[in-house]
Write a protein that binds this DNA or RNA. Structure first.
Lengths: 336, 336
DNA sequence: TTGTATGCGTTATCAT
DNA sequence: ATGATAACGCATACAA
């Protein structure tokens, strides 16, 4: 019924071993023989059985992408970068979503990885997430995206710098009373929210400005969270003249809160985000853009290398991608 | 080194066959025996080798999701629905992006499916896409999402109705000169853009209104496309008083175009979209919402059923999910 | 209910 | 450069 390597071998008058070598492009195969085998394989419409190949070789030819969200912009965009690289390399991409602490009832990812992938890519889990540690404990080649951990390869932006750039932008515009909408779990080491806050602090400190603790609110990296945080800021007795939101989605929520209060972004209060979200241009939001697709790409490429030569290469590399400030209408000089 | 089913069998004092049956929950296994085997397997930290299992059984335990885009809202959101169902079912999800005619240089999906998945889910490809036909020609269980084809299981919304709902909403508000921003390829049968246009036409016709061909422009389902289409509409000698955009993203672009022209959505021109995009609430856009996550869910569940009993069940079912109109500030009664 | 034995389709080692 | 053959780890028909 289904045609196997043996059929090809018989048709070509060679052994299965030769067919296997020829079709995989291994050396020590006569050019003519290889060509003949390839033609016959094509004629017979032969395709290798991945299961058999995997069983025999021990390699699965697939890698898992572990993410707390599949539909949200950042994660989906990273995923698209990963996918393009893996597709080119002929590697299967197994998508696995995890609970992200808040989420649904989901199976833990680690058990699902065993024996079925050659490596894993983890997107923006909390460094304290036990699921992350379970995955790392598996010992298979792994790269992190959007978070760092000591001793583990990762691809991120310089979050401290990103926070600093955003804050400095507002400072340069003359703002002094600056609010901040944080993600969550500021305090945990090696996290984007923490690092971005550190950058914010540093910029403020360098400028000789105080950080009013009443002007810092959690937005949990969601639009509604950002909206609530902004509402809290707006209802202060001394509202800020500018606000730094640690993500564009939170900034979107903040914009919405402003509109509810009849305030004009930029005009009344300046707002800057981080991400370079597709919608930020439409909403005229200033932002520190990060190359999200490239984050995924680089991580995938790095992992592929790691898979190729298990020994060679820097044991664990921390790749930092550049960010850039995009100034739009949501940030303006502080009105005199 | 790695522990196999034989190790478990030896430790339990039974045959590998019994272990295989016990661990897979098959009947005809003594309760006590099963329990003991499960405990021992857990103690030994045994995990089945998927490759071996697949090779022996012929089933791969995985299904492929084929999509023209992974990061765009609709596709990512559908994907999230699919993922949640497959994860619960313990099925591996292989993600494959395809060129979508415009896109990158990518490998055709069909060859990549052979012998490696039990079924496929295809998201919103054009019914005329040769890649789609290649996939269907594989003959494996397949469900379509967001498109229909005669004889193939699918999960969609009633696009004709959606178009009609959007148009009728504008008509009910007293608008008569109504523009439309289409996707693309209106004219091809069985496509969302075509059906939505048919609904639009029907509603207009029922209301005794003319469709001015100069008020129909392509937006190609993108924000910038929508922006350009809207700009074209605005620069007419007789601009419309209301516009129906076939997707929210195109509507977003239209809103942007309006802003560029100093026009207020709802106030100057009403705009309604289709989708129920996350951002539509923020942008105060009226829209005909579709249950995108559920589209993915249902398709995955249907496919799972199809996989379970290859014979039973309706041979090819066309599932229609409901849509609902969400009225927001972007649509208002026609000013007198 | 449980065991036996064969097959699944490759890869890889060792010869030749 | 090519061939023979033993793994690879499990599922399953057939027996018992």
């Amino acid at each position: 019924m289904t045609i196997t390597i043996k059929d090809v071998a018989d048709a070509a008058g060679v052994s299965t071993a030769t067919v296997s070598r020829a079709l995989r492009g291994l050396p020590n195969v006569d050019a003519g023989t290889r060509e003949r085998i390839e033609r016959i394989a094509a004629d017979l419409d032969y395709v290798i059985s991945p299961s058999a190949s995997r069983l025999a070789s021990g390699r699965t030819g697939s890698i898992a992408v572990i993410t707390p969200h599949v539909a949200r912009w950042y994660f989906a965009t990273v995923l698209s970068g990963v996918e393009s690289v893996l597709q080119s390399a002929g590697i299967d991409l197994l998508l696995m979503s995890v609970s992200s602490s808040d989420g649904q009832h989901r199976l833990p990812p680690a058990p699902r990885l065993r024996r079925r992938v050659d490596g894993a890519l983890v997107i923006a889990l909390s460094p304290e997430d036990p699921q992350l540690h379970d995955v790392l404990a598996l010992g298979l080649p792994t790269s992190l995206i959007g978070l760092t951990m000591p001793g583990v390869p990762s691809v991120t932006i310089d979050d401290v710098l990103a926070g600093r750039m955003a804050a400095q932008h507002l400072i340069n515009l003359g703002h002094e009373r600056i609010g901040v909408i944080t993600g969550a779990s500021v305090g945990a080491p090696f996290t984007a929210p923490n690092d971005r806050y550190l950058g914010f602090e540093a910029a403020m400190s360098d400028a000789g400005l105080e950080i009013d603790p009443r002007l810092a609110h959690h937005g949990y990296f969601t639009m509604t969270g950002g909206e609530q945080a902004m509402t809290a800021l707006l209802t202060q007795r001394h509202p800020p003249t500018a606000v730094f939101a640690m993500s564009d989605e939170m900034a979107f929520g903040a914009l919405r809160a402003m509109r509810s209060h009849g305030l004009q972004p930029g005009e009344d209060i300046s707002i800057v985000g981080i991400d370079g979200h597709d919608m930020s241009e439409l909403l005229d939001l200033s932002t520190v853009a990060q190359p999200v697709v490239d984050l995924g790409r680089s991580a995938a490429e790095a992992l592929l290398l790691q898979l190729k030569d298990p020994g060679t290469g820097t044991p664990h590399e921390e790749i930092r991608m550049p960010t850039r400030l995009i100034v739009r209408g949501s940030t303006r000089p502080r009105s005199a």
